[in-house]
Nucleic acid binder design. Structure first.
Lengths: 255, 255
DNA sequence: TGATGTGAAGTCTTTCACAGCG
DNA sequence: CGCTGTGAAAGACTTCACATCA
């Protein structure tokens, strides 16, 4: 695999690194906040601080998009908001379906973050007939029998799976068969999808386990510090000011 | 920054790469499933497929933990489950508090993934006095006035923030001041924490935006394919069988 | 024999450090 | 003069490919 048959469209500009893509939403959020406060321009330093990264990384990231800054001054907030939005494809409307309207699915449906930026909940789908017709977040739940027609009628290409683990793969298969090519998976399962379909996952228990790992490590080092090492608050793994727990090199998997 | 003052404890074995740590929970889940089916051993190939990674990566990952496999045979499932659990710190009990019991907080409280592996919801905390005493997922919600005493009385070191964005930083500060050193943040904000505190974030809208980026790219390439390029289903960014949308190089940020 | 464990190569990402421009 | 934009260096992660050993 990875034959590197990339055809590099001569137009240049193609090939924004995955790691950069994953940070664009962060920059966009920070910029939006600045925009709301009517701040006209920001320096890479300021914006980086607001986004929780370091300024060199931010400048490098922006350099992949083009030269949108002014030397000696900084970046025009409004202009950057537009450029990043466009780059992320947020200038168009993305209808999204949520499948599995349990506690989590309902919470997602109620989440305000959807409408804010180009995303629109086109439908809520659940396998429980008793749920059908019941409104959640103002949207009536539809039965999963209608999954295919909903996808097609609304031109949905992004699906969110919030079902129990066991239902996730079958639901995923149906979504893909109906035309969905991007899936956000909240179920604790590895999904198998055909080539050309992107899957991203969000998994509470994985995140907690990663935290536990580091937590345990801290406890161990504390003990070590008492018995042998000098500094107690030291022994920290180095690292910059940098924030970025998640969303780093997700690599989206076009699998 | 990043002076690299790591003191390498001579004990060897220290320094499991972040990317590997992020995959251990995945392996553990796959192994647990095998264990439940009473499968005694697995090859790296089989386990890798179940976890959605490739076998070379898996073997390399395991090599950081030690030599737990048998050449010509594979890995002993039970033994590996134990070793990974231990490495992740799941052999001990981690009391967790959830702050912000709205739709999402309630969904998290109800989520079964907690109890399953070493995590225990020690308390639910909300700022709304009307919520106080109301049971959610069988646990009575407590008012945030009691946050500090709850943390201390229960020896909580992991906190989950599911508040609105505006409340997240203040809540985070209080958690940290009370002794929490690991935070899982569901609020769409960048949290600032002192050195030695780990933060991981889960952000629906960021994930969707990343998907939108790729979705847009697909649409563009389709168009390009029609007008100029040959293959339609081609033009895919290469990549392995590999799954791994999230949880790749999170780098936990000890900031 | 067959699958692990691992140096070495390759690729991607971050950081440095400074030229260049407004 | 100050801040952007970017080559180049450093570092992290993945993949290869094969020696090694049960």
């Amino acid at each position: 695999m990875a034959t590197g048959r990339t055809h590099r469209p001569a137009t240049r500009s193609r090939g924004i690194p995955e790691a950069t893509v994953a940070r664009l939403p962060l920059y966009l959020r920070a910029l939006t906040a600045l925009s709301e406060r009517s701040v006209p321009t920001v320096s890479s330093e300021e914006l980086a601080a607001a986004a929780g990264v370091n300024s060199a990384k931010l400048r490098k990231d922006f350099s992949y998009l083009g030269s949108y800054g002014t030397r000696g001054v900084g970046y025009d907030v409004e202009y950057l908001v537009y450029q990043i939005s466009r780059e992320l494809g947020l200038t168009q409307d993305w209808p999204v379906v949520i499948v599995g309207i349990g506690n989590l699915g309902a919470a997602l449906a109620n989440y305000g973050g959807f409408a804010s930026r180009g995303f629109r909940v086109a439908a809520l789908i659940d396998a429980d007939p008793a749920m059908a017709g019941k409104p959640v977040a103002g949207i009536p739940v539809q039965h999963s029998d209608e999954l295919e027609s909903i996808i097609q009628d609304n031109g949905v290409s992004i699906g969110v799976i919030a079902t129990p683990a066991g239902a996730a793969q079958p639901v995923c298969d149906r979504l893909v068969a109906a035309g969905v090519t991007s899936i956000l998976n909240f179920a604790p399962t590895v999904l198998t999808v055909p080539d050309g379909v992107d899957v991203r996952k969000v998994d509470l228990s994985i995140e907690l386990q990663i935290l536990a790992f580091h937590e345990q490590r801290k406890a161990g080092e504390e003990a070590t510090a008492q018995t042998s090492a000098p500094a107690p608050a030291a022994a920290r793994r180095d690292s910059a000011t940098d924030q970025g727990p998640d969303g780093d090199v997700p690599a989206v998997m076009p699998a």
